[in-house]
């Protein structure tokens, strides 16, 4: 298990531009092993771009990214990181079980070994009863659960979850966060993006992002203290407006 002081993810002056548009502007952040880090910001603030830079799908325009001590894209990062994309990213023409088995095979898991893991995961995301259903026939919430199972099948050390609770009903959102906290207890580091400010309380530390800029960084309580606001939604608005803390 990683020591809690180990930095598993670090970005330094990270810039990403698409043509004339700057998606990320000089992002500096660090996440320690075993942390549950929440990246919070509105749609279009650069969260997904950051995720794609972290897994190596995109290359930074400038600045550096380090994940598990290596520069993405690196095979070791790919082996140790679980990535749940913002979309479902599952195969609608495969069954629930086949989807998870397919992603297990991408990580080189032998079929015999993965069978037990798949059962365990489907129990966890409460899809055992639908294991033979085609993924395309599942409800939106079930698809998100399946997507999460696919991201966790290889027991990653670091989970990057891009808006895992977007479009998910409150009951399922609660179940998701309960599960994320369980994973954290098992030593998994989590980076979770969301635009639901009420979910921030589940995280150890938060990064508030807007227009590609990290406008605040700290524990939820610290951010409230700094902003002198009663809730994170107000705090976000304060930081976003560039107001000096009261």
């Amino acid at each position: 298990m990683s020591s809690s002081s180990e930095i598993v993810l670090k970005t330094t002056n990270l810039v990403k531009t698409f043509g004339n548009r700057q998606a990320l502007t000089g992002l500096d952040m660090e996440i320690k092993a075993g942390e549950n880090f929440g990246l919070i910001g509105p749609n279009g603030s650069g969260k997904t771009t950051l995720m794609r830079l972290l897994v190596g799908i995109m290359r930074p325009t400038s600045g550096t990214v380090e994940v598990l001590g290596r520069k993405p894209p690196h095979l070791e990062i790919k082996r140790s990181v679980g990535y749940m994309t913002q979309g479902e990213a599952i195969y609608p023409d495969l069954s629930v079980e086949e989807n998870v088995a397919f992603f297990a095979s991408l990580y080189g898991m032998p079929r015999r070994k993965s069978a037990g893991r798949i059962r365990e995961l489907l129990d966890l995301v409460e899809l055992t009863a639908r294991r033979r259903s085609l993924a395309g026939n599942l409800s939106g919430g079930m698809k998100r659960r399946l997507s999460l199972a696919c991201a966790m099948v290889h027991e990653p050390r670091l989970l990057l979850l891009d808006e895992p609770t977007a479009g998910v009903d409150p009951e399922l959102r609660r179940a998701f966060w309960k599960h994320f906290n369980e994973l954290q207890r098992k030593g998994v580091t989590l980076l979770i993006t969301t635009h639901h400010l009420d979910e921030a309380v589940h995280c150890d530390r938060l990064g508030l992002i807007r227009d590609g800029k990290l406008i605040a960084l700290g524990k939820p309580g610290e951010l409230l203290d700094q902003s002198k606001c009663s809730n994170l939604e107000e705090a976000f608005m304060c930081f976003a407006a560039g107001e000096e803390p009261k």
Partner: peptide, 13 residues
């Protein structure tokens, strides 16, 4: 379009 390529690219394949 369904996002699976993004996931494939993030995997060791």
């Amino acid at each position: 379009s369904q996002g699976t390529l993004e996931r494939l690219l993030a995997s060791p394949i």
